[in-house]
Design a protein around this nucleic acid. Sequence first.
DNA 1: TTCTTTATCGAAATCGATTTCGAATCTCTT
DNA 2: AAGAGATTCGAAATCGATTTCGATAAAGAA
Lengths: 342, 342
Amino acid sequence: MKKLKLLDIASALGISKTTVSKVLNNYSDVNQFTRIKVLDYVRKVGFEPNRQASFLRTKKTKTVALILPRLENDFFTKIQEGILKVSQENDYSLSVATSYDCFETEKKLVSQFLNRNVDAIFLSISHQTINFDHLIEIQKQGKILVLFDKIEKTLDCPKVIIDDRKASFIATEHLIKNGCKQILHFRSGYKPQISIDRYLGYRDALNKYNIPFDKEKVIVCEITDEKNGFSAAKKAFELGMKIDGLLAGSDHAAIGAIQFFKNKKLSIPKDISVVGFGNWKLSKFSTPSLTTVDQSAIQMGEEIFKIFLEEKLLESRDESPSNKTHTLSANLIVRESSTKNL
Amino acid sequence: MKKLKLLDIASALGISKTTVSKVLNNYSDVNQFTRIKVLDYVRKVGFEPNRQASFLRTKKTKTVALILPRLENDFFTKIQEGILKVSQENDYSLSVATSYDCFETEKKLVSQFLNRNVDAIFLSISHQTINFDHLIEIQKQGKILVLFDKIEKTLDCPKVIIDDRKASFIATEHLIKNGCKQILHFRSGYKPQISIDRYLGYRDALNKYNIPFDKEKVIVCEITDEKNGFSAAKKAFELGMKIDGLLAGSDHAAIGAIQFFKNKKLSIPKDISVVGFGNWKLSKFSTPSLTTVDQSAIQMGEEIFKIFLEEKLLESRDESPSNKTHTLSANLIVRESSTKNL
DNA sequence: TTCTTTATCGAAATCGATTTCGAATCTCTT
DNA sequence: AAGAGATTCGAAATCGATTTCGATAAAGAA
């Protein structure tokens, strides 16, 4: 029960494998009767050409690679889901890997994927990445690079991000309109662009409503998980801050903080209104349910793959990569944790 | 800036590409001085052989494929996480796809992956799958097949499952020990093995504690999501059942049911104790927090890949696939939703 | 010294497709 | 009827590695 080869088809039909290949690749110099004969036979025996051989010849693998900083994260999972949906529809294969937010791992993965001749690499840069030579190498080798989420502006490739600054602005504005005047903000590190943008959006809103900015009210949590959310809230408390609102860096951090506030017998949202970030599944089911920013990650994933397809078109016309930054808008999902007047 | 080929290395060193290849593949008929010379040079220029070419020759792609019924599901996400961790450590590439629980899609994916010459396919069978020829084909082509979660016992390949029957037994026993005597059970369809096993575990526990089984108390939800959990609870209510416990088919279904019970002013766990299934993230943060069965999915993923490695060993010794069913134990995580005496 | 063995190397075949280019046939002008 | 042009085909080169097998030289045995 060996696998059929091009040659088997050809000799069965009494023609050359060249012609069979031409039919399968829609060459025009094939008589329509032979074409039909081949197509019928191919369909009948269910022949599919060995991809490996054609990859070697054409240098195209119909495979795209996705490198995520981590997997245990709804946001990235959804991005994968979006990419997978569209890539599968287009008969592309998707290879997934995680950098575990480690620079060395990221470099190694990129090099491995290049060796495997993937057509494109979709990447959210790791926290630790400090140098971008490995990404430039991707383009040097004629592969398509699409950055998303944690991007690097100086690189000459299409980028997809959420408008975090605006989202953060809207979330903060929502708190203000609900009567908050002392708004705490948990941000992740100083470097990540998303952290910067969210911080700026927060300040934009304070500015617009003439609320004085208080440096102390911005607390850095390198990783915005429950534990850090909890301890950040504790820290604010111990510093004796007066607080009536919180814009957290993630739903998890928000929930950690709520946990702390509850322990202190504070009522959410009456005493402190809270807004998270991410619209993770748990945000809907926590008590109180959490107002949060939905990042429409699935849509982002779909967008990423579509951009890749466009880039391929550009490339086929010998044009250079687009370099455009695609900004998707996030939207606020208002739930119990921030609606004092309910 | 072209990519280096074997021939480039060879002529730079004044030897043949055969010898270079032999060094890289640890052949013994190479002089140790030439070997070192080659290795040094290869390291210096950072040469890596074109995978596509070697794949064509060797028929091994160092790629494994994972086909999941769906992605928006913590359980499968964690399985992927486990597989990815170990596969990455072993320099394997992981291709992911979803069947969307559709038989046709599953068949198509399997055929595509076979054409791409993946070394193994890891698969959780789709709900709709009624025929297994496509899976037998995997083995006919000498590829390794590992089934998990939704498996098919008649197939001759290694399988990895959770001991759902026992887990379900423990969960039900836990409810009984907490004083429940009228335990509702939501199960998914009649065919899936996990649904059957969980149902059996439920009955095992009833038997052990001499609690009469009431057919009416088992409600089928094809898809165990919140909506169906909600309506299943509603149905039980409308049928006028007396209930003091619920073993749901998933955390989501449990939470949907809790939502309904809350609407009816019933207290959880006082009036009705609830146990979910899956230990999804939200279970920890729902109110009340949800007692649930943790399926240790990450570990399951790791196990799957390790089994693949073992199978490869078997294969290299020309032995037939192992056919063993690996049963991992799940453990109960007790939280508020089921502890009446707190 | 002659014959065997062993160590080391490389030419050539191979994997299975794609693609170039020239040959053969047929049609259509003039 | 001859030449131009279009149509259809296939032999052979190619992609870049792996692997077989024979050649050569060196070492050891008789």
